[in-house]
Amino acid sequence: MPIVEIKDLRVTFTGGGKPVPAVSGVDLEVERGETLAILGESGSGKSVTLRALMRLNPEGKSRMEGTVRVAGQDVAALGRRELRAFRGRTAAMIFQEPSLALDPVYTLGQQIAEAVMVHDGCSRNEAMARALALFERVRIPSPERRLQAYPHEMSGGMRQRAMIALALSCRPQLLLADEPTTALDATVQIQILVLVRELQREFGLAVIFVTHDIGVAVEVADRIAVMYAGRVVESGPMREVIRRPRHPYTIGLLRSRAHGALAKGARLETIPGAPPDLADLPPGCPFAPRCFLATATCATTAPGPEPVGAGHQARCLRVDATAALLPAVAEG
């Protein structure tokens, strides 16, 4: 049984005037020990989907529909107390900006010990011992001293390691990572990715990794889900999606990468237009206005998921047309 099962998840923000459907009908599954990368640009609903898994979207200002089951528990039905036990223990999260996600007035040791004590009710000494073990595990040099350090005294990479240690402190089964490498240097990025990979194998963690960086997704993921305008437009095994993309948006994303050194004077390919206003989506495919393959039907008919390979789906009416493009994409 998969550890994460999302069926027809809809999250609507109702804070402002017009309700904004940030996520509209997402289906996802993640197996134990598997890493799923959710790929998408800003506003595609990837972070909202991730937060919905822990019910972290503001309760008063958003509405959540559909089923979200994590480790057999229906997340929407959890009571206050169960939800507190669920967060941190079943699922834990690491954030994009570790300097903001760590409390500046407490030492790292205190913060980890606090989380451990809240969940396990153990003594401060035991909690600190666990924090030390975790610091060693995420390979922070001179961990004893670093436990006594404040977040601002550490480098970005060390802070993110500490953040990971904090997330793992209550031995979760599912790790949610919200662009954890975006704020880091390229060299530090790869170290953190390697670390996440390694911890994931060691603890048998399921990882959901939200990113807008295809390179990062390729580095960590077993499977990839590409999101656009609040829905998953393409999902499948990592290699399959990267080598044989079938949704025009994925194709556009892959083409708009700078592969290695771009020849001088060569233009970077881009996807024309801008992401749609979520509060005012077109009736058909939300990508149609920017799509190079769009037909008149695309503007009126919303596509359903089309199977295009083993475990590979694309939400596009023109998967036949994209199939014809395959050699061109693979060569690029």
């Binding site: 822990m54 972290l56 206050r80 507190r84 036990a85 669920f86 967060r87 941190g88 223990r89 834990a92 999260m93 954030f95 996600a101 760590l102 409390d103 606090e114 989380a115 809240v118 969940h119 953040m163 904090l166 997330a167 402190s169 209550c170 949610l176």
Partner: peptide
């Protein structure tokens, strides 16, 4: 939010 995500009430 991180504290909330780690189960703090």
């Amino acid at each position: 939010e991180a504290a909330r995500a780690s189960g703090a009430g």
